Simulated scan of single mutants.
Amino acid sequence: MKKTGIYLLYGGALFFAIVLIIIFGSDKKTDLKNASVNTQSISAKKNPAEDVKPAEKIQLYLFHSTNRCYSCITAGEYAKKTLEQNFSQELKSGKIEFKEINVDLAENKEVANKFKAAGTSLFTNSIIDGTDNIKEDTQIWRLVSNEQAFSKYLSEKLKKLMGSEASAQETENVEKEDIVFYFGSDCPECENVEKYLQEKDIRNKISFEEKNINKNEEDANQMAEDAMYCNLDEESFGVPFLWADGKCYAGEKDITDLFNEKINGIS
């Protein structure tokens, strides 16, 4: 009887051990299978940059009204010069097409509607597999006071669209969000905006430049050019002032409202 009990005990322990081996062995196989699938998934992923095809053709269109401002005229001159100097072959072959288009003329209504252009604006259309990829460029207007910077920026952008190699820094400069916050000394509203930026931790959420117009005359001139692009006269703007994506925001409320909109879009 005792032997029978011992045999049953040993038999039960052996059975339990076998069950455990089967269970853990199955889990291990499952883990290895999942690991294999995950490895295949990771190796199958491509660098997003590899999925972007070079443009077959690039249209660079500068839209303007009949009465052209200094910035519009200058941008046209700089763009034409840059293309002739750096992309003469592409212009000749038709790979790059540059036009200055008056939106006030009836014959240009169709193309203006296609690009959704009104007044002064610069657009690129990189045509890939016969499909239009139209984008407005607002950064260009902040460079009309510096021909060298204008030419460098435009050249890097066109090279990228054509698939030419560009450094990581060049790519970052082209794609960086175009936001500049202008402020001044002894400015109560500027201080309020600064307090807001700190309380909401805006600097760690949104990338933007900050310029004190009382310490740098070039920054003050740049703010005036930005305001001129937005058709604001000298009496209509002052600090705090924000240039963001081709639009102007003057005063504490407009500036903080825009930042709130942007951070809400991130979260």
Rank of each mutant, 00 (worst) to 15 (best):
N216T: 09
D254R: 09
E189F: 15
D233Y: 14
N212D: 11
Y153I: 00
S126F: 14
Q139M: 08
E175L: 12
Q148T: 10
R203F: 13
T120S: 04
K211E: 00
D245V: 01
D233T: 15
T124P: 02
D226E: 07
W141R: 08
Y196S: 12
R142A: 14
F115D: 05
E172P: 03
S151P: 03
K247H: 09
A149L: 13
A227K: 03
K176F: 12
R203Q: 15
D186N: 11
A224Y: 04
P240S: 08
F241P: 03
A117R: 01
K176P: 05
E199K: 15
D178S: 09
K195A: 13
A118C: 10
L161A: 05
G119W: 09
F150L: 07
E252F: 13
L197W: 07
F123R: 01
A166G: 11
G251Y: 00
S164G: 05
K205F: 06
A244P: 03
L232Y: 07
S121T: 00
K160P: 01
Y229Q: 11
M162D: 13
S126N: 05
T124R: 08
E177A: 11
G184M: 09
E210M: 15
Q222L: 11
N133S: 12
L143K: 10
A250C: 07
L122V: 12
L161G: 05
Q222G: 04
K157P: 10
K152G: 00
D178V: 06
S167R: 08
Y249V: 12
A227R: 05
Q222E: 04
E217Q: 03
D219G: 07
F241M: 06
Q222M: 09
F183N: 14
C187Y: 10
L158M: 04
D186I: 02
D137E: 13
K195C: 04
A220M: 10
E175S: 08
T131Y: 03
F241C: 08
C230Y: 01
N113L: 07
K159P: 12
L122W: 06
G130A: 12
Q139E: 07
E172H: 02
D254W: 00
A112K: 05
E218S: 06
K215C: 10
K159R: 11
K200E: 02
D254C: 09
S167A: 08
K215G: 15
N214V: 01
V239Y: 01
G184W: 04
K159I: 15
G184I: 08
L154P: 05
A250Y: 15
Q169A: 11
E235A: 13
K157V: 14
E209H: 10
W141C: 04
A244S: 13
I206A: 00
A168Y: 13
D233H: 12
F123D: 12
R203A: 10
G251A: 11
E189Y: 12
K157H: 09
K211P: 02
N221K: 15
A244M: 11
K215R: 10
V239C: 12
T138P: 07
Q139P: 00
K157N: 13
P188V: 12
E170T: 04
A250G: 03
C187F: 05
N173E: 14
K176S: 13
T120Y: 05
S167Q: 06
E235L: 08
K152S: 02
L143S: 07
F241W: 02
Q169C: 06
E252Y: 14
F183R: 14
W243N: 09
E194S: 14
A168S: 09
D186T: 14
E177C: 10
G163M: 02
S207W: 05
A112D: 03
L232H: 04
Q198F: 01
C190V: 15
L122S: 11
